[in-house]
Nucleic acid binder design. Structure first.
Length: 576
RNA sequence: CGGGGCGUAGCGCAGCCUGGUAGCGCACCUGGUUCGGGACCAGGGAGUCGGAGGUUCAAAUCCUCUCGCCCCGACCA
């Protein structure tokens, strides 16, 4: 491809609304343009990367026994009404009406549609196992689209669905997908962890997320330094160290502490010269169906795991109470809530329950209490409700400790069981002529999100650094100056490489060298070839990998057999 | 959903407080000089100031409504 003919609108200025590297670089390098909130154009280079991601995903799904299908995005509401998600999905579901006033929605995912296929086409135990997948656009009206391609309202996803006759079969299907995902992300050169995850509203028994490690990620995960255990903090078990210590300390009589204007943990610890782990942090939550606020108490240095709070209360989710409600329930301003004397239900985390002679809010503005002890000064249900964090002991091997990471969820695999098949009547006849619901699994990969995710892990101050497997082109030729021999040599090399099956971008523009080098670094094609008049006079051209930080460091290659040598380099990089 | 902020040329922004001829940088076009890490000089084109209504002799500027967009938060009470 000739740069002069391509649409590659690079810009020097950082887009005003971009906050993360992938969004900034995709925009600056001319891969992506914003159309609306969470809605984007893929320009030629961006689409080429997207296609590379799709190709790898497709190859690995096919290898694992999947069959590709294509389901519609526009869905009659009946399907989602049948599964109950027409109501459950709430505002996230894009809804519309046709000219007759009939209800429709845009598909946020396709369990209902694929289950509809299954109930019509999969009738016998002989028809299974099956694995159907598609690469298709999804629509979700996110409360807040953000991060460029990382969280969009319209995005491209690979979703696969497995159908089995038995639990064991479903587990085998799940395992095949796990292996396929590992291969997929390995081929993309990503650093990731497979982590235990919440099955959430999906209602399945087994699920795991593939989290690509990146500081810009929205998800928090913890991983053991000693064994393979890794989990989303939502589900990680945070164990408490030596509860025996608590029993040893003698309790002291409660005291009142004047803390005017000091409401936060940080302010109180500074004022009283104590450590956060000697404080009780009290948060108030509302739960659907419960008129009263629930107080959750964790140690001052810990965070509340809201998912676990919800589980402990037997509800789907809980919400932090509004400021006005907190004042009403405690009689004090924010920052001075505490369990002593609180009349409502209290849940205390196991670690907080072990705190002896701790400090907490007095439910009176500008006052705290000292020497507070669970069991003596307040009663509460003891439940593990805190988030796991760095340094916590691993519950799996009991030797290692957790390290916390930020991750971008790139894939999620579930065993769904009969959640949808039972509800929608996707049944089959087994060998003994009994009708049973098929056992399903579902497996997603965020295809368009991966384009951005790869950049989050592969960039530097000059631009993107694509792995060969995802690069929009494999080799970038910069021809410098206007000398006819240089242009001729570049054209010859370009044509020869294309004939050898190499994807080449030749910067043939009438631009100064600096402009070409800056654009080449920004676009981030893994191999760059420079052809200049001086080198050409010696029969040489220069090869520089994008990952080489020294701009002057380049390998000299004889022009005579450059095409063959370079094609071999590309092949080698693809194979590694 | 709560809080904050922004909509002015293709992009990034100033001007608004204190109403009076719409500006800067990048990009773009023309000519010239340059040419191995985002050149320089000269000239030029390009904007219903998000939209609607109002106040006023006069509105980008003040008021009301509305649409769009961004950030923070959905936590440390």
């Amino acid at each position: 491809m000739l740069f002069s003919r391509a649409l590659i609108p690079t810009v020097k200025e950082v887009p005003g609304d971009a906050t993360n590297q992938s969004h900034i670089l995709l925009t600056r390098a001319g891969f992506l343009r914003k159309v609306g909130a969470g809605i984007y154009d893929f320009l030629p280079l961006g689409l080429r990367v997207l296609r590379k991601v799709e190709r790898i995903v497709r190859e690995e799904m096919d290898r694992a026994g999947g069959q590709e299908i294509l389901m519609p995005v526009l869905l009659p509401a009946e399907l989602y009404k049948e599964s109950g998600r027409w109501d459950l999905y709430g505002d996230v579901l894009f809804r519309l009406k046709d000219r007759k006033g009939g209800d429709y929605n845009l598909a946020p995912t396709h369990e209902e549609v694929v289950t509809d296929i299954a109930r019509r086409e999969i009738k016998s135990w002989r028809d299974m196992p099956k694995n159907l997948y598609q690469i298709q656009t999804k629509f979700r009206d996110e409360p807040r689209a953000r991060g460029g391609l990382l969280r969009c309202r319209e995005f491209i996803m690979k979703d696969a669905y497995s159908f089995d006759t038995t639990e064991e079969g479903a587990k085998a299907s799940y395992e095949a997908m796990r292996v396929a995902y590992t291969r997929t992300f390995d081929r993309m050169g990503l650093r990731y962890r497979m982590v235990a995850a919440d099955s959430g509203a999906m209602g399945g028994s087994t699920s795991a997320e593939f989290q690509v490690l990146a500081d810009s990620g929205e998800d928090a995960i913890v991983a053991c330094g000693n064994c393979d255990y890794a989990a989303n903090v939502e589900v990680a078990t945070a164990r408490t160290i030596s509860p025996a210590r608590a029993a040893m300390a003698t309790t002291m009589p409660i005291i009142r502490l004047h803390t005017p204007g000091h409401g936060t943990i940080e302010q109180v610890t500074t004022l009283l010269k104590i450590k956060p782990q000697d404080m009780f942090k009290s948060l108030l939550y509302t739960a659907p169906g419960s008129p009263d606020l629930i107080m959750v108490v964790v140690r001052g240095d810990h965070e509340v795991n809201e998912l676990r709070v919800a589980r402990a209360l037997g509800v789907a989710e809980v919400f932090l109470a509004a400021e006005a409600d907190v004042k009403k329930a405690t009689g004090a301003d924010l920052g001075f809530a505490g369990p002593v004397g609180f009349s409502g239900k209290i849940i205390v985390d196991r670690a907080a329950a072990a705190v002896r002679n701790g400090v907490t809010g007095a439910n009176e503005t500008d006052w705290h209490l000292g020497n507070v002890n669970h069991g003596q000064n307040f009663q509460a249900d003891v439940v593990d409700v805190r988030l796991a964090a760095t340094g916590d002991p691993c519950p799996n091997c009991e030797k290692g400790t957790f390290t916390a990471y930020k991750g971008i969820e790139a894939g999620h695999i579930f065993i769904l069981g009969t959640h949808y098949s039972a509800k929608m009547g996707a049944n089959f006849l087994d060998e003994s002529q009994q009708s049973k619901p098929v056992i399903m699994g579902c497996y997603g990969i965020g295809v368009s999100r991966l384009v951005a995710t790869a950049i989050e892990q592969h960039n530097d101050q000059d631009g993107m650094r694509w792995p060969m497997s995802l690069a929009p082109y494999q080799l970038h030729i910069c021809s410098l100056g206007k000398d006819a021999p240089v242009a001729e040599a570049a054209k010859k090399l370009h044509d020869e490489l294309e004939a050898l099956g190499v994807e080449v971008l030749w910067d043939d523009r009438d631009e100064r060298p600096g402009v070409k080098f800056k654009d080449a670094d920004l676009i981030g094609i893994p191999l760059r070839v420079t052809i200049g008049a001086k080198g050409l006079a010696n029969g040489q051209l220069e090869l520089k990998p994008r990952t080489e930080p020294d701009p002057k460091k380049a390998e000299l290659i004889a022009v005579a057999d450059a095409a063959r040598v370079l094609a071999d380099r590309v092949k080698a990089a693809l194979a590694s």
